[in-house]
Each structure stands twice: as C-alpha cells, then as structure tokens.
Nucleic acid binder design. Structure first.
Length: 620
DNA sequence: AGCGGAACTT
DNA sequence: AAGTTCCGCT
C-alpha cells in the first residue's frame, strides 16, 4: 500500500538548495516541485510515487495554483505549468513517465554519478525507491544570501505535529496574495517558516533509510584517514542515530567553507584545497544551480541506483575521472566481498577532483566540488521566418529553412534541432526510456548522424506510441527492444537487467556506446574483458581533450554531434567538441571534473586504476 | 493529456 | 535564463 512516496520519500535535499544568485531569489519550478513533494501537507496534491524521483501530480490544478501563488501568477494553470515542466525535458531535470498521467520523474541518476563517482557502490543492497538522501541542505548555503532556502529544515517532518492543520491552512490557502506587500514568501515558505540551520536537516528524511544498513560497508569511502580538508566527520557518523541515518553533513556550514574535497576518500589528497569562497565570485553564469551532496547520502543513493545505472548503461566515463572509485560490478564471480575494494585503494591517487581547471579563469574555488549545474536550457530555434503562415503544413519545411544559421557551417545539415540529448550525459540519460536509448547505445555512430531534429522528434513520438500502444517495432530495430507495452521502460529496465553478465564481470557500465562492436557482444566468452582497458584509455583521452578544451563557447552546445566519423577516435573527438562540456551533461562534467593540472599524474593513476579494474575483471 | 514552437516577460 | 502565455497538433 504504501509506496515510497506515501511514506515520505526522502528527497534529495541538495536538490533544493540551489544557490540563488545573490539578489535574485526566484524559485525555480523544479525546486518548487521538490518543495511540495517533500511536504506532507501536499501529499494529496503531489507526491512521490514509485520509482526514483518519480512523482505524480495528483491535483494539477492545485499544484498550478500553488505555483502561481508562488510566482504571483494568478493565471497559472496546469497547462502552463506543464509547459514549464516540459522545458525541463531537454534540460534533463525531468522527464515524463510515459503512460502515467501527471507523472514525471526527476533525473537524479546522472547527477549523482557524476558527482559522487567515488562512492562505492559495490555492495549489493539496492533500495529501490529511495532517492538520494539529502544532506547538507541548509548546511551549506551560499553565504551571500540564500533566502531561497525554501524549506530548509524539515521541521514539520521532524515533528509532524507541528504542522498541524492550522499551519497547513495557513500555508495553503491563505497566501495567494502577491499584491500585499507582506507576501514575499510563498505559501510554502511561510508555512515552513524559519529554518534553523542548527538543526540537522538530515532528519528530514524521515525514516528513509533504515539504520540497519551496515554503514561501513555501504558507506565506506576510501581513506579512512582524517580529513584535513574539513570534512571532518562527526564521530557519530559511524553509528548513526537511528532517527537520522544521515548525520548532518560534515560540511562546514556557516563559515561558508565547503570542504574542498569531495569526500573523505579524497581527503587523503595532499592537494591543497582552496578554501571555499562563498562569494559572489561564484556567481558566474554557471552558478545557476549548484548543489552539494553529502557523500554518504550519495552513497546510499548510488547503492540504490546501482542497478539503475547498470541498466541505463551509464557511461563509465564519469568514473574515469575518478580512478579511485570502485565501479560496481554486478556479478563478480568469486572475488572477495566487494566492499573490500574500498579498503585498499591501491591507488594513492590524488583524485582528480581536487584538481582545478587550469585554463579557465573561473574562480577555481567552486564552493564545492560537488556542485553541479543543471543543463542549459534548450535553444530556441525560432527560425520562423516572417510572416509565412504555413504553420500547419510546414513542420518539415521550416526545418529546411533553418539551415544556414547554424555555426555548423561545414556540416550543413539542414535543419537541426539540436537537442542536448546526445551528449555524453544523454547517453546515460535516464531518458532512455525508449528506443532512442537503444539506438544510441547500440547503433551509435550512424544513428547519431542522422539524428536530425526532425528525426528526433519523430523518433520521440514514435516512441511514445510505442509505449502507448505497445508496438514500436517498426522503429526499433534494436534487437533488444522488447515489444512489450510497458509504458515505463525505466522501471522495466530497472528490474530486468538487460544483460545479465554471466560469469563475466564486464560491467555493463563499461559498455561504452562508443564501440559498437565491443559493447554489443555480450558473449559469455567475455569479449569485453580485454577492451576494458582500451575503453578506459579512450575515455580518458577523450576526457583530456575535453578538459583541455576547457570552456569554450557554450553556444555550441546545440550542435549536432558527430559529423560522421567512423573512426572511433575521431568520433570521440568530435563528441568532445560538440557535446563535451556544453550541453547539459557536459556542463556538469566540466564543473565536476576539474581537469587535471597534473594530467600526467592523473594518467598514471588512471592506468593503475585501469589495471586494477582489469585485474578484478580477470575473471573473464 | 501531452508535446513543443514561438513570442513575450521578468 | 527561466519561465509565461498562447496555440496548433497528436
């Protein structure tokens, strides 16, 4: 009966804490949604449902009303709100859960992975619906002013009683007046009231994670050593309070110092950390939404998502950046317990995380290495010429007209709806719900090239149909595609690992779509064993390029990727060029993965890591 | 319902 | 940049 959602799913608190630019405290819709989601009072209006990050809007009108109230847009309605929500698709913040009305899903996966690659996901437990656990939320606020901490602490959560009907009422109906000067706050905000940072926000996750988890195994991070960086963990960490499985984030709070290190694991790193500078300096354009994750939480989350990741074919690329991380191996034959790996990270690497972007002038001291930025919004492709009114018939025609404008001078693919989709992240993207994923993963090269806007679009639609009707066979040539009509592939996939690795460890994660030939073969023989290193290397080089590339114009993000390389390397390079870094995922990566100042070192580390992995894989 | 283009607003 | 508003299409 109780779905995770009902029970009060823990939400990623980090998700709430976007730093808002110093003066602007405009709440963002997704943020707002999260707010509602986390409050019990609104469970009848909107609530988590089922899958990770999946939620259902039970009362669209009400949600719209609330949103309108918050934004002082009385005219708001679900139609409009949903439009806004749809804009998130491309940004990958959300995606629609097909087949389920009013149901959407947050994409936490990649974010987590990207941000917490160092987390050990080796252990097997995989709590399904638990989203990442938040933490830190109020702890780390951006100094300047983060009034927007919407609901910072979950007082009500902690003491349900508090939020009695009165409060609730107050919260809900009363405020809609934007007119009054008084109402600066949203309903929610008022309702929630003050947050006291002093309190552990973590409590917010009521019962989310059963204390039963063997912390050390699950959450163990590399390097038990003391963390000079400031990630001093409270001792109690070891034995979490039953009530709050997630100890307060160690992140230094008020001072505004975020531990520069990513995690304790990284703590060993000798690298001098830059003190977090709360400053406004951070307010670069990228500052849009940064979050910080609590490693522990993330770990948990990752645990939960291991499967997911597996299924989604998340690109291991992210891991490359963090050689010291342990990649989950779904089916490791007989090696010791997975957790062991954690212990002896033979790799004394200084994690790449500590490294900064060399080239860029961006303030290297991002508040936290964990921050990530959501992807940039889609581009507006407005190329609608002036008055022609072909609207009805011309979906295609417009495409053609579009041609010249792109920077893609050479390519000259006529219309290109460049969606951020295909970048690195996208691959891992949750969105994969459909065939498209398979296409990308399996067919790669060619598919990409032809992924023109139009195609894409149709593709999607077809997919929808596929899901809706249960037949998409025409499109999906993919061998794997199951004709089943399950609307929610995500889940589907989730439950059923696409390719049960037989004795071979080859982590699915390592299936780089890059190499068609290799990835595909899941032969029992273990074809993939060898390629592993190779893959890593390739990835690595790619990454390096990417990094070297530094930040370049973001404008390019929308470019169509791949001009048609056959060569893997070449292709990779292209990807780097195009997607790397700019579009959504890339951006994240860029932020998260500081280029190695010491690439050389990194390289060797990588090698070692690779070697290790390979060894582990030797089972093949 | 849901999607997404386009113009417009903050 | 992140919606908001409007709207045609499926």
């Amino acid at each position: 009966m109780k779905t995770p959602g009902d029970t009060g799913f823990a939400f990623p608190e980090w998700a709430y804490k976007p730093e808002s630019s110093p003066g602007s405290r405009q709440i963002q819709l997704w943020h707002f949604i999260l707010e509602l989601l986390r409050k019990e009072e609104y469970h009848d209006v909107i609530a988590w449902q089922g899958d990770y990050g999946e939620f259902v809007i039970k009362d669209p009108d009400e949600v719209a009303r609330l949103w309108g109230a918050r934004k002082c847009k009385p005219q708001m309605n679900y139609d409009k709100l949903s439009r806004a929500l749809r804009y998130y698709y491309n940004k990958r913040i959300l995606h629609k859960t097909k087949g389920k009305r009013f149901t959407y899903k947050f994409n936490f996966n990649k974010l987590v992975l990207v941000n917490y690659p160092f987390i050990d996901m080796g252990s097997g437990r995989v709590p399904q619906s638990a989203p990442p656990v938040p933490t830190g939320g109020s702890h780390f606020r951006f100094p300047p002013s983060t009034p927007s901490d919407v609901l910072s602490s979950s007082e009500e959560l902690r003491s349900p009683g508090m939020f009695s009907s009165v409060a609730r009422r107050m919260a809900r109906g009363s405020v809609s007046d934007c007119s009054d000067g008084t109402s600066t706050n949203s309903e929610l905000e008022e309702a929630v009231g003050a947050d006291e940072r002093g309190v552990g926000p973590d409590r917010a996750f009521r019962g989310l994670l059963p204390p039963r988890l063997p912390h050390d195994s699950l959450f163990r991070v590399y390097g038990g050593g003391p963390n000079p960086a400031g990630l001093a963990r409270p001792t109690h960490r070891v034995h979490p309070d039953p009530l709050s499985p997630f100890p307060v984030s160690p992140l230094p709070g008020p001072g505004g110092l975020l531990a520069p290190t990513l995690s304790p694991a990284l703590s060993m790193t000798p690298t001098p950390h830059l003190p977090y500078t709360p400053s406004p300096s951070l307010s670069s354009p990228m500052m849009g939404s940064h979050f910080s994750f609590n490693p522990e939480d993330m770990k948990h989350y990752l645990q939960a998502h291991t499967q997911s990741v597996y299924n989604y074919h998340l690109s291991p690329r992210a891991f490359l950046h963090y050689p010291n991380i342990i990649i989950p191996q779904p089916h490791r034959p007989t090696l010791e317990k997975p957790s062991h790996h954690l212990h002896g990270p033979p790799l004394p690497l200084s994690h790449s995380l500590s490294q900064q972007h060399p080239g860029s002038m961006d303030e290297q001291q991002h508040p936290s290495p964990f921050k990530f930025k959501l992807q940039p919004p889609p581009l507006g492709r407005k190329q609608r010429e002036a008055g022609s009114s072909l609207a009805a018939s011309s979906s295609s025609s417009q495409a053609s007209s579009f041609s010249g404008s792109g920077h893609i001078s050479n390519a000259g693919p006529p219309k290109i709806k460049v969606e951020p989709i295909s970048d690195i992240e996208s691959e891992e993207e949750v969105e994969v719900t459909d065939i498209s994923e398979e296409d990308e993963l399996n067919h790669n090269d060619e598919e990409r090239n032809i992924f023109t806007p139009t195609v894409r679009r149709h593709h999607n639609q077809l997919n929808n149909h596929h899901q809706a009707n249960g037949n998409g066979s025409s499109l999906s040539t993919a061998p794997h595609s199951h004709p089943d009509d399950d609307p929610d592939d995500d889940e589907e996939v989730f439950k059923t690992p696409a390719t049960p690795p037989i004795g071979s460890p080859a982590f699915p994660l390592l299936n780089l779509k890059t190499e068609p030939g290799q990835a595909a073969p899941i032969s029992p023989g273990g074809t993939r064993c060898i390629p592993l290193k190779l893959r890593f290397k390739r990835r690595w080089s790619e990454d390096q390029k990417m990094e070297a590339d530094g930040e370049r114009d973001e404008a390019e993000d929308k470019k169509v990727r791949a001009e048609g390389e056959e060569e893997v390397e070449g292709k990779r390079a292209v990807e780097v060029e195009n997607g790397g870094g700019r579009a959504g995922g890339s951006v994240i990566l860029g932020l998260m993965l500081p280029p190695a100042p010491t690439q050389r070192r990194a390289s060797s580390e990588l090698q070692r890591a690779t070697a290790q992995l390979s060894l582990e894989n030797t089972g093949c």
